[in-house]
Amino acid sequence: MLNPQWLRTFLALVELGNFTRAAERLDLTQAAVSQHLRHLEDQLGLLVVRRPRGIELTPAGRALLDYCGEMELADRRLTSRLSDQEDEAGEVGLITPGSIGLVLFPLLLDLQQQRPEWKMRHRFAPDSEVLDAVLESRYDLGIVALKPDDPRLAASRFIEEPLELVVPAHEDVHEWSDLERLGFIDYPEAHATASRLLSRRFPGNPGVGSLRRQGFSNQISLILEFVARGLGFTVIPRYARIAFGREEEIGVMECGAPVIDTLWLIHRAEWPLPARCARTVEYLRERVSVPVIKCEAKRKRVVKV
């Protein structure tokens, strides 16, 4: 590591071309300027050649001058990254559950088209993986269904998401026997999710595990493909249904009092978000309800049971 004071002396000497003027600018003696230069030359070799009318840089001196320029640029980048103005370029990392992620992902792409210098990186993951990824700073932002109690994480309400009973178009569900007839489309965590809604609509039911399993997918974007083809029913978070492109092929059964999850936006609490990430959050908060409004208006049918 080169001594910063020696480098400042070298830069002043190069700019002014004179030992006396460099000493005056730096409030040093001329002997101190010469000593700083000598220390650098002991490490790097001859840097300057004294001429009657100034100095001339050697190849090593030009290389050191370039190095000083790179260091100055690196200092500016560091200052920018640590300041609230650091939104010029960089990555925005967001990790979410599948359902809300299906709606947020196209919004992230819209934002990247507006700000190409912001590189969007998104991953679908369950709550446990979201928490680990944000805690380990592998992602700037995360969304979880349960508010964390870890003091290292800051959590704020992002949006509410109801659960929905989704059946093939032209099917009705009035009794538990209708669900038995249709069969269940399964996915990871589906039993816990479905039980929360179905236990309210059909109290005392024998449980989701008693239903015939008609299909399974671990990709939340594919679950409603089964339903749209008439192969069974499922219980799914609303945003997964909204993201499905063929709403005319499915129906949503109204089940009385809704079962609603609050989704929480999380990030590390010990330091502020980069400005580009904070602006991304603002952008998503402003727009996340828009797809809901559009899709709700286009729904063909909602059947009360």
Rank of each mutant, 00 (worst) to 15 (best):
F10C: 07
T29P: 04
S34L: 09
H36N: 15
R38D: 14
L40N: 06
L40A: 08
D42F: 13
L44W: 12
G45I: 15
R50N: 08
P52D: 12
P52S: 12
R62E: 15
E72Y: 09
R76F: 09
R76E: 14
R77I: 15
T79A: 08
L82S: 12
A89E: 14
E91S: 01
V92N: 05
G93A: 05
L94A: 13
P97L: 12
G98D: 08
I100Q: 00
I100H: 00
L102W: 01
P106M: 07
L108V: 04
Q112H: 11
P116D: 08
K119Q: 15
M120T: 07
A125D: 07
P126T: 01
Y139F: 15
L141E: 00
G142W: 00
A145E: 14
K147V: 06
K147I: 06
E160G: 04
A169L: 05
D172H: 06
V173Y: 02
W176P: 10
R181C: 07
R181K: 14
R181H: 10
L182S: 05
L182Y: 04
G183D: 09
F184V: 03
I185P: 00
P188D: 06
H191E: 13
F202A: 03
P203D: 10
V208C: 02
L211Q: 04
F216R: 07
F216N: 01
Q219F: 01
V227R: 02
R229G: 11
G230H: 04
F233S: 10
Y239A: 03
I242G: 03
G245P: 11
E248G: 05
E249L: 14
E249M: 10
I250K: 04
H267V: 05
R279N: 06
Y283Q: 01
V290F: 01
V290D: 01
P291A: 09
C295F: 03
R299I: 11
R299T: 08
